[in-house]
Amino acid sequence: MKTKTLLLALCAALPLTAHAYKLDRTMDCSMTVRDFFTPLVQAHAIQTPASMIGPKGANYFKKTSDNALTFFNMTVGWVVGYTNEPLLFTPPSDGTIPNFQGYGFYLQAPIAEVQATLASVGATAAQVRRIEPNVTYVYCEFPAAE
């Protein structure tokens, strides 16, 4: 009886782990915005179109409800990005074209933990910004595409 209960519990847990999407190898800033977002869209890891457009043009994407996004076991909240790719990104409503392109995400982790993780994997090009004590924004930003 115990074996059946354990087997049922493992089967129930499989769908939860099968939908995890790891962003572990994305923050060396060598990827294009398209290369970063394409697998996320194909895996249905983020909701499209963007849920929110920031005042400077950054597009904010929610993760899908059935997917868990992680970065070295830290929980990813929003995924953020912009480039002049009209199929995925929406420019600001005032019609201005952002003067940057880039990608990143918000982590539910303190900045010191995020910085230590980035340093340990050699991702020194990624920029890090503390948003709240346990929320950190990690991003790669480039000049605007021409």
Rank of each mutant, 00 (worst) to 15 (best):
H19L: 05
L107Q: 01
V41R: 12
M27Y: 14
Y137A: 02
N99V: 10
M27F: 15
A12Q: 01
A20S: 11
R129W: 08
T75Q: 10
C11I: 13
V33C: 02
T32S: 15
A144K: 03
Y60I: 08
D24N: 15
I111D: 04
G54R: 02
H19G: 04
V41F: 06
L40T: 00
A20C: 15
Q101I: 04
A123N: 06
L107Y: 04
A116K: 14
L6T: 13
G122I: 02
A18H: 15
G57T: 04
F100E: 00
P133C: 06
V135M: 08
A12N: 00
T90N: 11
P110R: 11
N99M: 10
E146M: 02
F61T: 01
M74D: 03
G57V: 06
F71A: 03
N99W: 04
G81D: 02
E85K: 10
A112T: 15
H44S: 14
S51C: 05
C11Q: 14
F61I: 05
E85C: 11
C11F: 11
V80S: 04
F72T: 05
Y103L: 05
F71T: 05
T96A: 08
L118N: 00
Y137L: 06
T83Q: 09
Q47M: 07
V135E: 03
Y139W: 07
F89N: 00
Q108M: 12
S120V: 07
K56Y: 10
P110G: 09
D94Y: 05
G122V: 05
M74A: 12
G54S: 14
K63S: 12
F89S: 02
L16E: 05
I111M: 11
P55L: 13
A68L: 07
A12L: 11
A125G: 07
Q127F: 07
Q108A: 09
G81H: 01
C140Y: 05
T26W: 01
M74S: 08
V41G: 05
L6H: 12
F71Q: 00
T17Q: 14
V33Q: 01
L40I: 11
P91T: 13
V121N: 12
V138R: 00
I46R: 00
T75N: 11
Y103P: 06
T48H: 03
A45N: 00
A112W: 09
K2N: 12
A125L: 15
Y21K: 10
Y139G: 10
T26R: 02
Y103N: 06
G95M: 14
S65F: 08
Y137D: 03
M52S: 09
A116E: 09
V128Q: 01
T64A: 15
